[in-house]
């Protein structure tokens, strides 16, 4: 009896807190029919926001993979002073509120910040454009790839790499044939998480984007803008795109967890 009650309670909670809102997004977006929905999505400003979001995510992703693998590697394989500090530092973006992160970036890389001011005479502007969006997205997503790979590297140890070394493999061959296959699932998982976060980030991006309509609005910012403009249909239509991307990410994540090989050991 208690068991049934608990299951009911959990289901009810999930339905109210998770399922209902997601259903509501789609319901509201289609409330005025397909025509209005499509017109909202195909609105030039919304399309521009989708494009910017995807471009930013596609820039962030490879950078994050390279830095994530490199930092995980360094922490797993080398002992050096400050190693523990680095481990904590990499996690910092999880702890800092995104809006605070955005403000910090503005403070340093903005026109009045030390770096921003130094670059300004050369006509280089880092904030209120794609560069700014990419920079803060990198900050908020920086732990994902690294966090997924590090435990795998720790568990597999370095004996296989040493064996490859004695067999005459060079650094690239060791990475390509020994390390990469071992970390590939973690890497894929981290990549999916990074993608989801990079596309959905609101707080940090809202500070540094400058919110120029049709130019520096990412999808989450565009949704807020439409909603504040009393264009609820437009806002919810745009929201279905973001939700759709999130659902795809979720599906990918599920597939990775299900089919990720547990062949090791």
């Amino acid at each position: 009896m208690a068991r049934i009650l608990l299951i009911l309670l959990a289901t009810l909670f999930l339905a109210l807190m998770v399922v209902l809102p997601v259903v509501a997004i789609f319901h509201r977006a289609f409330a005025e029919g397909w025509g209005t929905y499509l017109a909202s999505i195909l609105d030039p400003e919304t399309l521009a926001a989708i494009r910017l979001t995807v471009i930013a995510a596609l820039i962030v992703l490879p950078l994050n993979i390279v830095f994530g693998v490199a930092s995980a590697w360094v922490i797993a394989r080398y002992r050096f002073p400050g190693r523990r500090a680095l481990l904590v530092l990499v996690e910092l973006p999880f702890a800092v509120s995104p809006i605070v992160a955005g403000l910090c970036f503005l403070l340093i890389y903005g026109a009045y910040g030390p770096v921003g001011a130094a670059l300004e005479p050369f006509g280089v502007q880092l904030m209120f454009n794609l560069t700014g969006i990419v920079l803060v997205s990198l900050f908020v997503t920086c732990p994902f790839v690294m966090r997924e790979i590090l435990p795998v590297l720790m568990v597999t140890g370095e004996d296989e790499e040493k064996a490859a070394l004695t067999l005459g493999a060079n650094g690239w061959q060791i990475f390509r044939h020994v390390v990469l296959p071992n970390i590939s699932w973690g890497l894929a998982y981290g990549t999916v998480l990074t993608m989801a976060r990079a596309m959905g980030e609101f707080g940090a991006v809202s500070v540094v984007s400058g919110a120029i309509r049709g130019q520096t609005m990412t999808l989450p910012l565009q949704i807020e803008l439409l909603y504040n403009d009393y264009n609820a249909t437009g806002a919810f239509a745009a929201a279905t795109v973001l939700t759709g991307l999130a659902l795809v990410t979720l599906a990918l994540r599920g597939l990775l967890e299900r089919f990720g090989p547990r062949r090791a050991h």
Partner: peptide, 19 residues
């Protein structure tokens, strides 16, 4: 190490697990 052409058998065997 790679140029020495010495074969090494590790205590853990260190076989490449995905090969």
């Amino acid at each position: 190490a790679g140029q020495r052409h010495f074969g090494m058998v590790f205590q853990s065997y260190a076989l490449f697990r995905h090969m």
